[in-house]
């Protein structure tokens, strides 16, 4: 079985993230790393691989040179090999374009199962897995908090707002997993050393038969016109409870007409 796990290199969410002058995500001033939510995808790919025979886990990313760091992390966790799609023409590509590049790369790599995280921690749209299923023409079993593969079927639990659902789909399929799916492993020293020797292929747009005019900032189907720093919330009154704290808070809420 061939598993492709999609990962994204994102600016650290605990850093002071901002927009660049062209209103794309600034990637220079904040250190990048493998999106935390994608670690869960790598983890589930590895767990599924451990349960099945002859399974190969390929980590795939689309991004600039530094995005290799995300692939290295996935390899050190235990993925077998990695593919990096890198091309100057990709800068500023929107979600529709990104899904095109990923789908072409997944098809070229060959797959039985595609696994991704629930969303990236920067763009946070959470729609790439659904778009991949649409483009690849295979079932989507997304936002799973529990996932298993057996007998050519993927099954899992999807917790929605109104109900929790048990899903079942035939492979090949696209799956995404949530942060409830199981704690991601830390790379071992051995894993980190082994990762250095694992193969990382680099593909560009021509390798994927994608015309330059279908991706990139100029050709995106959406445009960001402005990005403004939200004025920081200013701290209001803080009192220390000396037996009247609850009543003081009630007085504040009454003043604001909440009670």
């Amino acid at each position: 079985m061939k598993i492709v796990v999609c990962v994204k290199y994102v600016p650290d969410a605990t850093g002071d993230r901002k927009f660049a002058d062209d209103l794309t995500v600034d990637r220079d001033d904040v250190d990048g790393l493998l999106s935390e939510l994608d670690e869960y995808a790598v983890e589930q790919a590895l767990r599924i691989a451990e349960e099945a025979d002859e399974t190969e886990v390929t980590a795939l990313t689309v991004g600039p040179e530094d995005a290799k760091d995300a692939l290295r992390k996935a390899l050190s966790m235990g993925a077998d090999k990695a593919i990096h799609v890198e091309d100057d023409g990709l800068h500023g590509t929107d979600v529709i374009g990104t899904s095109l590049v990923l789908a072409k790369a997944i098809a070229k790599a060959g797959y039985d199962l595609v696994i991704s995280g629930m969303a990236s921690t920067d763009g946070a749209m959470g729609v790439v897995p659904a778009l991949l299923a649409e483009r690849l023409g295979v079932p989507q079993a997304t936002l799973l908090s529990e996932v298993g593969v057996e007998g050519g079927l993927v099954t899992g639990r999807r917790d929605g707002d109104a109900a929790s659902e048990r899903l079942e789909a035939r492979l090949p399929a696209v799956v995404s997993v949530t942060d409830q799916s199981g704690e991601a492993r830390y790379p071992s020293f051995k894993g980190i050393m082994a990762a250095k020797k694992k193969p990382v292929e680099t593909w560009d747009l021509s390798d994927l038969d994608i015309e330059a005019g279908s991706v990139g900032l100029e050709h995106a189907w959406t445009a960001v016109d402005s990005a403004a720093d939200r004025p920081a919330r200013t701290a209001g009154t803080v009192v220390t409870d000396e037996g009247e704290g609850g009543r003081q808070l009630a007085a504040f809420l009454a003043g604001q007409k909440f009670i």
Binding site: G236, D241, G245, G246, L249, A250
Partner: peptide, 24 residues
């Protein structure tokens, strides 16, 4: 959290919150 709060109470929630509920 106090940097964002319009009104904050430094205290034990097990004292402050029930008193607030009772007062409301």
């Amino acid at each position: 959290i106090f940097d964002l709060a319009d009104f904050g109470v430094v205290g034990d929630l097990f004292d402050v919150v029930p008193q607030l509920t009772k007062e409301i």
